[in-house]
Computed example of a mutant assay.
Amino acid sequence: MARYTVLDLAAWKKSGKPFAMLTAYDSTMASVFDQAGVPILLVGDSAGNNFLGHENTIPVTLDELISLSRAVVKGSERALVIADLPFGSYEASTQLALESSIRLLKEAGVAGVKLEGGVRVCEQVRALVNSGIPVMGHLGMTPQSVNAFGGFKVQGRDSKADEIIKDALALQEAGAFAIVLELIPAKLAKEITETLSIPTIGIGAGINCDGQVLVWTDLMGLTPKPPRFSRAYLNLRQEMAEAVGRWVLDVESGSFPSAKESFD
């Protein structure tokens, strides 16, 4: 079967069908999520603090995202794969944004890119869209601006709400095909979703967005201190620790490998 495309998202918005997006950073998990029917896989720079051991997303490089994205594309068959433009790969100029995005499409095989910011990045969005590169926006608690925000905090309360609405409309006008809304009040996310003709994808933004996204390690219960907006459907961290512990004991006791796991 063919992969999902940005046109599918537009159709889901029009019909009112909610949809899911999940992060992925390697081919094995991409294959599992693809098999489960997740229509959109995001190779996020969230790999920084969920896969690469960094404190936040800022240290993640374009070369790292290309490598991770290539693996996710190879591990999936049906999902639309979108990759983040990491910090420092698009802000300086439209030319830099174009060069970075071309590398992600050519070297990794992704179908589009995601970048953070509103009005300030619309010139980059237009340049990418005019070059045939689908762009997903990202507003609210944009992790690449964590230092400016003073931490991971809810955005868009009080007077800041109008600014996020303005940014969302600007991204839509610039040609973005969807916008992630992160850590903003549910009421504001609902207003933005009803105002825009393009889909919104919420993460900590309430139930009224067109779609929802989570970091997969939060979903599976691997994150030691998950954010409030996530929901763990498994306690995989404990289950994996127990399984590995049993294997270690088998090795130490001399019961692994057995004859069944050995060769003549």
Rank of each mutant, 00 (worst) to 15 (best):
I192N: 14
K74E: 13
A92L: 14
L115Q: 02
K13M: 12
N235P: 00
M141I: 08
G140Y: 11
L169T: 05
G137Q: 08
P59Y: 02
P257N: 04
S46C: 06
I179N: 12
M21T: 02
E99H: 13
L188G: 08
G48D: 00
V113I: 07
E242V: 12
R231H: 12
G204Y: 08
K260F: 13
G48Y: 01
L196V: 12
S15V: 09
Y4A: 07
S31T: 00
Y25V: 02
K74A: 15
V251F: 15
A176C: 15
L115S: 05
L9K: 12
T200M: 11
F149R: 09
R3D: 02
G112V: 04
G140D: 08
V81C: 11
L139F: 10
E91K: 08
G211K: 10
V113M: 06
S197F: 13
C122I: 05
I82G: 03
I203R: 03
A168N: 06
A241N: 09
W12L: 11
N130H: 10
L42D: 02
A111G: 13
F149G: 07
A108K: 07
D162Y: 05
P227N: 09
A241P: 02
A241H: 01
T5K: 02
E99Y: 07
M141S: 04
G37I: 10
M1C: 10
P134V: 10
L22K: 01
M141E: 02
E107H: 08
F229Y: 14
L236H: 04
P257W: 06
E116S: 06
V129Q: 08
R70D: 06
A71I: 03
E64L: 01
K190A: 14
W247I: 07
I179H: 13
I179W: 10
D264N: 01
V251W: 12
K153E: 08
V248D: 13
L115K: 09
G112H: 06
N147E: 14
D162T: 13
Y90F: 14
K166C: 10
N50D: 01
R157Q: 15
G156D: 06
L181N: 05
L169N: 04
E194P: 00
K160L: 08
A71T: 02
K17L: 15
S27I: 03
T142K: 08
E239T: 09
D45M: 08
N235K: 10
M1F: 09
R126T: 14
D34A: 05
G53E: 00
E107V: 03
L68G: 01
G16F: 15
A30R: 05
T223E: 09
A170M: 08
T57R: 01
I198P: 05
T61L: 13
V215H: 01
A148Q: 14
V180C: 00
F263Q: 12
S76D: 04
S89L: 12
G254S: 10
P86A: 11
G211S: 02
I203W: 02
A176W: 03
L188W: 09
S230Y: 09
A241K: 07
D162E: 12
T28M: 11
